[in-house]
Design a protein around this nucleic acid. Sequence first.
DNA 1: TATTGTTATACTCTATAACTATA
DNA 2: TATAGTTATAGAGTATAACAATA
Lengths: 156, 156
Amino acid sequence: MNLPHETPVLSLFVSHDEKQLASDLALAVVRLARQLRGHRQHSAVSLTQLSALSTLFSEGPMTPGALAARERVQPPSMTRVIGSLADVGLVDRMPHPSDGRQIIVSLSEAGKALVQNEKDAREAWLAAQLRNLRSAELTSLREAVDTMTELMKTCD
Amino acid sequence: MNLPHETPVLSLFVSHDEKQLASDLALAVVRLARQLRGHRQHSAVSLTQLSALSTLFSEGPMTPGALAARERVQPPSMTRVIGSLADVGLVDRMPHPSDGRQIIVSLSEAGKALVQNEKDAREAWLAAQLRNLRSAELTSLREAVDTMTELMKTCD
DNA sequence: TATTGTTATACTCTATAACTATA
DNA sequence: TATAGTTATAGAGTATAACAATA
């Protein structure tokens, strides 16, 4: 072995592991995301729409800019998503009380009902897949969901 | 409580947990996939392209139909991906030795080099995020990658 | 002048339906 | 007639640049 003596062997391996994990995780995530989108072709809302609705559900009404930041997309992308949700009556847009430039987006009653219904009964394909997993696998998935959520909070 | 007496309480809760986990996992996965795609804007290849290249790397040359099945996309989608990769010289297309309808797609030398280089050095953003995680979180992510990969193998 | 949201435009990813060539 | 791959077309999702209205 010809390692630079300033570099502990352990940290070298950890670093390599992290690169490998980053690569593996990225591929697994994009492939699973592809499947999940595909299995929702006949759902009322897409995963992009559901993601925005879920944020409004858990965090309450907010401006398009805040929702874009929270979902980590650019404002014009969120304008589109909000427009599509408003078109089908799942969100309402109201003027901001004190700033004429801003608007407030909130879930309609139908939007709230849809989010609760989705939480309770949708993702049928994935839930079916999960039914075949062992307890340890479910546990690691649950922990991974938390970790992935944290990763995105510290995103650049 | 008014549970049907055929249904064990435990399995009811597990079922609910699985639905909840399916919902949470789906949102986490699509959001992380969005980030990962965004952070590769200046990479040589997209994650869709890298996914196909990685499959060719690990499983060797195959027909477009086999690659589409392996990546779980429809054949016309794979035609496009292969076309884009051939345009930049990362894959080669050769006639099938015995069936004039089929072709064989394989990694070029540049394609092999790119996959190895990506594995070793890319996903920089994600690797940086992972560096801040604790060992237990890394472990659950590693296990989750395996589980997600398995999930897709048993896909409809 | 800076900020918020929208419009215009374009690119990637994916799908379905129709077509071509070969088996 | 069935199969493999491609072409044509469309729609979702996302981005950047330019614009309008308001602060």
